[in-house]
Design a protein around this nucleic acid. Structure first.
Lengths: 207, 207
DNA sequence: CTCCTAAAGCAAAGCCATTTGCGTTAGATT
DNA sequence: AATCTAACGCAAATGGCTTTGCTTTAGGAG
């Protein structure tokens, strides 16, 4: 969550997730759920790229004031929803060969973040972040997944690229393309994984 | 320029660069110059991340209406300025060895886009783009530079990675880090170029 | 030099996000 | 069950972005 801290961190209002624990009762949760799904609807509809708090409140059926007091700005809200949406993982491929695992994994990710709705979320994340951060849940998830696949391959005795290389040379290019609106298809995803597999120490393919 | 076409492409107003040629006389150019440098000032000051048209007009000493009629929205304007700012190139390294050329080149780029002002421009570019495009001047510049360096290396008989690999595995990760506010330093830039140099057919370093 | 008109300036209107004070609701606590 | 209070709803006020019709300026053409 620290990933999404916007510029409003210095504002008198608490960071929206700090006071969430103070009274996480039914009504608060209900409002938050309604607001989150309203944002999801509006992002998904793709009607416009701009989204205002009164619009979200209208769809969610809550009072705009509630959103203003809890999140302060549309950027903060969008950022929070974006992280929530982007960190829910898909099942991890497990084909028995790292090469194929990576190819399938990158295809899944490309298809996922290539969708207009996910692209909107990613752009919202970019817009919501002003400061430099060390880590972000979105990439941590990918790191864990890469670690899992590489770990399995290492146990099988395969030569593997490092986790860092996978993040830098598969994940980063994919997200770069998504964010800047460049093409994203299976072929591109496979090309990236093929490249990264050639970075292994021995350079030997596993089959 | 087609790179920056926002969602306002369907609006009755011409695309701001199409009618620029109709009367590019002194006054229009003067206003555009004033507006562009005003945006530069405001982005550079880094006071806020949000910037309004009336603010820009105030700094530029022009009437807000003029900006509204020519650019329509702050996103369109910011996008245009961003492309103009991001496509002015630095001198290209020419050390005689591709390995060193790439390392120096990526260090320069990392230092460049790591600056807050450039990060602001990049974020503006992301924000201004809603649609998927084939190419963008910003990456085309990098492609041309990579082609130049790879071409020189090939003439020297060095084994080289492909231009696409350089764009995907050096440029994309660098910009990815810049846009999402992750760390950007010389070490990281060098790591990326070292990785990409190991993707050559033979995998042999040139020295 | 004179005319034409694209583009800028001006001013007023309106629209809408945002703020603010206060009353109300409903979890949480004892 | 009674009490407390965090969080929500309501409504009015505000401020500033945005639009719009018109006038004025000045680049470009004959």
């Amino acid at each position: 969550m620290a990933c999404m801290s916007g510029s409003s961190a210095a504002s008198p209002r608490p960071s929206a997730s700090a006071d969430r624990a103070r009274r996480p009762g039914g009504r608060s949760a209900r409002v938050q759920s309604a607001v989150f799904s309203a944002v999801g609807q509006l992002v998904g509809s793709g009607q416009r790229d701009t989204m205002t708090i009164p619009e979200v409140a209208e769809v969610a059926g809550v009072n705009p004031t509630s959103i203003y007091r809890r999140w302060g700005s549309i950027e903060t809200l969008l950022g929070e929803v974006a992280v929530a949406a982007l960190t829910q993982g898909e099942p991890l491929p497990d084909t028995g060969v790292l090469d194929d695992d990576l190819a399938e994994w990158s295809r899944i990710i490309a298809a996922d973040i290539g969708r207009p709705k996910r692209r909107a979320y990613l752009r919202a994340m970019v817009f919501a972040r002003n400061d430099v951060v060390e880590e972000c849940p979105c990439w941590e998830i990918r790191r864990e997944q890469a670690e899992e696949m590489v770990g399995r391959a290492a146990q099988r005795g395969e030569a593997t690229p490092s986790v860092r290389q996978i993040l830098d040379h598969v994940i980063a290019p994919l997200y770069h393309h998504a964010v800047f609106g460049l093409a994203l298809d299976d072929t591109y995803a496979e090309t990236l994984t093929a490249d990264v597999m050639r970075m292994t120490e021995s350079g030997s393919a596993s089959r």
